[in-house]
């Protein structure tokens, strides 16, 4: 019965953007899913493993740049760059993760932000990558492989498929040995170590999965938007977006990042539409306040709030 209801709800949600027919709403729906993908990917390491990355933009940017770079260099369809972006991300993840996962949690956070800034500055001065101007995708679609559509609907369905796959991976991971180990690590690293959990290895597994999917999200972004520059895909605000979406919905829960995206993306689109460029500053004041408030009062995010009430009543 519950499964039947769930399936019906998912089918309804998937059909809704097509039924609405308004391209603006369809675009927002697609952006919600794209945001949910990167936040779900962040959630693997930040939520499940409890290792807070505040530089995930570096993985997102790797995917985004790789996509448009293969187009610039070889005239390949941008999505063909995704594997390269993922590969670069995995290397960067090892570079950050191997040394810091032996240290306490802060070091990982500091290293992520330092590497993200380092890469942003280097990319912003590297002519091959378009320096400060960035890279463009195909001006006109040359075929279906370019995945360049006028309507936001195809993107909505592509993103939905990717997010479904990512949620399945997350669910499978959480139920596997890796998931149990990660929960132990998050609850208390020293205790986990002394019980013989190979902490370093499992944190790395979570980080690599997370980095790979974040790079894929970056590639999808580049394919849809057709344009990248250092600030829009490597800036600290890209990392902030992932953190806040996951933490608002509920870090370390399966659907938390989705809930966060459903709430935040429409709000962000509305404030941008209402205030224009000057609204972005205000948006991030509010983001800062939300992150602070969640950390201070409700580290479990909104999903925890929903789960709590029935148990207390019972």
């Amino acid at each position: 019965m519950r499964i039947g209801l769930g399936v019906a709800a998912v089918v309804l949600l998937l059909a809704a953007p097509a039924a609405v027919g308004d391209p603006f709403i369809q675009r927002v729906a697609a952006l919600v899913l794209l945001t949910a993908i990167s936040a779900s990917a962040w959630n693997l390491i930040g939520g499940y493993a409890g290792q807070v990355s505040i530089g995930h933009a570096v993985f997102f940017g790797a995917g985004a740049y790789a996509s448009l770079l293969v187009f610039k260099l070889f005239a390949w369809p941008p999505i063909a760059g995704a594997p390269f972006g993922i590969a670069v991300s995995l290397v960067l993840a090892l570079l950050i993760g191997v040394p810091t996962f032996r240290l306490r949690g802060h070091y990982f956070s500091m290293a992520t932000i330092a590497v993200a800034e380092l890469i942003r500055i280097v990319v912003g001065n590297w002519p091959l990558l378009g320096a400060a101007v960035g890279l463009m995708g195909p001006a006109v679609p040359r075929g279906l492989a370019d995945l360049s559509f006028l309507s936001p609907l195809p993107y909505f369905y592509i993103f939905a498929a990717v997010e479904a796959a990512l949620l399945w991976v997350t669910w499978a991971m959480a139920r596997s040995r890796t998931g149990y180990y990660l929960r132990a690590v998050r609850a208390g690293e020293r205790a986990a170590l002394s019980l013989g959990v190979p902490v370093l290895r499992y944190k790395l597994v979570a980080l690599l999965l997370s980095a790979g999917f974040t790079a894929l999200a970056g590639s999808l972004y580049a394919v849809m938007v057709g344009y990248v520059d250092p600030e829009s895909v490597l800036g600290i605000l890209v990392s902030v977006q992932m953190v806040i979406v996951a933490a608002l919905g509920g870090a370390g829960t399966l659907f938390g990042p989705v809930l966060g995206a459903v709430i935040l993306v429409p709000v962000q689109q509305a404030t941008n539409a209402a205030f224009g460029g000057s609204g972005s500053g205000l948006t991030y004041i509010v983001y800062g306040a939300i992150i602070l408030a969640i950390a201070r009062f409700r580290p479990g995010g909104l999903l925890e709030l929903l789960h709590w009430r029935p148990r207390r009543a019972a």
Binding site: V52, A289, L292, A295, R296, P299
Partner: peptide, 26 residues
């Protein structure tokens, strides 16, 4: 937040950073 999870410790000062930075920006 000191006795809470690591997530709360890091996000609290990071959120504060954003709040201060973008208030100054504004």
């Amino acid at each position: 937040v000191t006795r809470g999870p690591m997530l709360a410790q890091i996000l609290s000062t990071f959120g504060l950073a954003l709040l201060l930075r973008y208030t100054a920006f504004w």
